[in-house]
Nucleic acid binder design. Structure first.
Lengths: 227, 227, 227, 227
DNA sequence: GATGAATGAGGCTTCATTCAT
DNA sequence: GATGAATGAAGCCTCATTCAT
């Protein structure tokens, strides 16, 4: 858990701070996701984290800071998993696919936390909220970069990249936000495959289309192998 | 405000109930949107609604019921505006466009309320939550029907309709959910136009494409006329 | 209890506000005097006042506001009793004596509260503290006026009136502040008589001295009659 | 810092105990004076004293014991400074003047601490409180002795010595207690001079008056020399 | 039907004190 | 002897809900 913010702590030992905040954030994500921020008490977070109530306030200023810690720990997952998924992949279209695939899998892995972000970001004071937005933009940029590369390679039309990015982002988030319905329609892999097809169809140039056609089999084969 | 649920009221006069609930819901939407459900007190709702605290509990059982009232009043807007936008339009593609356009405008008209729905639906007890979901599905169905009509008319490919619908729905919601960023990129009309183009490109058959090409000018002309 | 300050209240009925604040202040004076401000809980104040905890916060913003109410209610006693004691008395020396006598009796009547003022004024936020100081100055002014009249009548030397006033004021307060020792030395009446003699001896002109000599008997006779 | 009480310490080395308690008391006086006893935390005292939280509890049993230490360290100042000021002076009137002058200067040197004593003594458990009272009586006795000497020398009337003492004591304390107002009226030296004049005028016999008249110049000359 | 004062349970937060290192 | 992280009881304050008028 890398928290770049100065959620001030009374404790000096940096390693310990890291460890405790990790515990607290993990417990908070779980409880806040389940019950929501306001329905969860600090006592419950403490109990689940296996520490005392007072301890939390040595590592955090506010209950709201606990929320911040929780949200950041979720966002950090994106920052780690997407680059990891892209590692070593050079072909632009494949990179985009990997990024979107990773994104959706992270979302799937912590659907409740994703929903939590939508529910609770507004519960933060403006300054904290900005931090969350910055993280989101950073994540989006990873998708946007892939799209830009596809355009540069002549595979995609020259669209407004950021708007296109939001289609992909909302598509990933929807898996969590509308999971209550989507899960009745299809599984995650199919959701990703169909969605990627759908969103990509708008973007592909004729050249891109040819490349994609060849590609798909490989990708899907890779997909089925991986799972 | 048509609340089909039995939010039990101590008052018998149906007309009065309707009126009071309208007042309460309107005040609640405003306050909940601004401050969130938990940060808003019933006393504040009462003050804004211009009634006494006690009165609210004669028309509602719970604070959660006030939330339900608020959310339903928002959802009702869709139920009214989308059909209204379709009224008298027969051409399938135009119907879809009108529906999406109306959807986005409703969202834009009460962005805060849309965000509220995402934030607060989970604060409802399961039973109430189902009600909200049902409303959402009903709204989605209006979009889905338009898509189905396009498919039937040979303008769209035979895709999974509900998945396609969600792309449109999320696109509309995104205008509220990500407004903090999107507004920096483009205005609402351009957002709708570009987004409709984008999502539609995936669906159009060659025949549909021709029709759409002709169509666009008309639609946009209509758009610029309307606004 | 006249509280000229805007300790804001959520309750609108002015009469009720007056009544409730009276209850709260009375309970607070008693408990704070006994146990001190910090050792007394709001719950205890509520119980003693015969109201619920929450009720207090409809008439007061803070626990500190309760302290303010308590202190002001004490200070108000001076504002009422001293003028009352002077009512109808014209002879300057007698007026001073009456004022000091009344002052000391008020202090004696609520010794604990007087000590409370010394203990707790600093617990108030600066703005509130100023209010208390203003009240104190107003009370002092009543003594000072009497001294000034004696000077004008040629009974007292022309000393620095305010410094002289403080000798009288501290003398009265000492009865409460050092009561643990003073009560072992003499009773209140003797304390007042000796103290007045003592402080007055410094001030009297020869003319004043003659007048005082005649006076004393009358005053003391009045004193013994009254008690 | 000589603490004659058995504030029990876990540490045996008497010199170390002395040193540590000195540190703690000094820090406590400063913080308690500023913020008050209850608003100051032990952690703050520890930080200001440059030691760890836990260490304090090796030299003190209670937070209340820290207060006791603090109050005693203040009272000790009187015990040292007043005798020092009297050293070598034999003339009774001068001795009284020196004692009062020293008293007022000590008060002035730690006005906040003087106020602290008035605010916080009641926060001590009765047994501890007695200790403080004993110290105060001891200090008073130094003044009382001077007064008694003046009476014995025929310079003062035969008044109730202890009551007279309290006039001087309250006069000194008032400089701290009412400093917010007194400082606007005069400086310390003038306060002392005028006050001494005032209180003394009541006591002097004709013989004393003559002696005092001669004396005053010397005293004031000494005063202006010293400062 | 409407009012709004009153209730009191519940949660966040502080901080004196302890204890393992 | 010293440290400082950890504990958890306690208190202020909020606010959903009730009920007498």
């Amino acid at each position: 858990l890398k928290v770049e913010v100065d959620v001030k702590s009374l404790v000096t030992d940096a390693v310990l701070v890291e460890k405790r905040r990790g515990q607290i954030a993990a417990a908070a994500v779980e409880l806040f996701s389940e019950r929501g921020f306001y329905r969860t008490t600090i006592q419950e977070v403490a109990r689940k984290a296996g520490v005392s109530t007072g301890l939390i306030y040595q590592y955090v200023h506010d209950k709201e800071d606990v929320l911040l810690l929780a949200l950041l720990s979720v966002l950090d997952a994106y920052k780690e998993r997407i680059p990891a998924a892209l590692d070593g992949v050079v072909e632009p279209l494949e990179r985009l696919w990997r990024a979107v695939d990773a994104y959706c899998h992270v979302v799937d892995g912590s659907r409740a936390a994703t929903v939590l972000a939508y529910r609770s970001t507004k519960s933060l004071p403006p300054e904290r909220r900005e931090l969350i937005k910055a993280h989101e933009l950073a994540t989006n940029a990873m998708i946007a970069d892939c799209i830009r590369a596809c355009i540069a390679a002549g595979l995609f039309r020259a669209v407004n990249v950021e708007l296109a990015t939001y289609h992909f982002v909302m598509f990933a988030h929807a898996w969590a936000l509308k999971h209550w319905r989507l899960r009745q329609i299809c599984g995650l892999e199919e959701y990703i495959a169909q969605g990627f097809d759908f969103l990509t169809a708008s973007l592909l140039t004729p050249a891109g289309r040819r490349r994609y056609a060849r590609f798909r089999k490989v990708l899907q084969a890779a997909g089925s192998r991986a799972r």
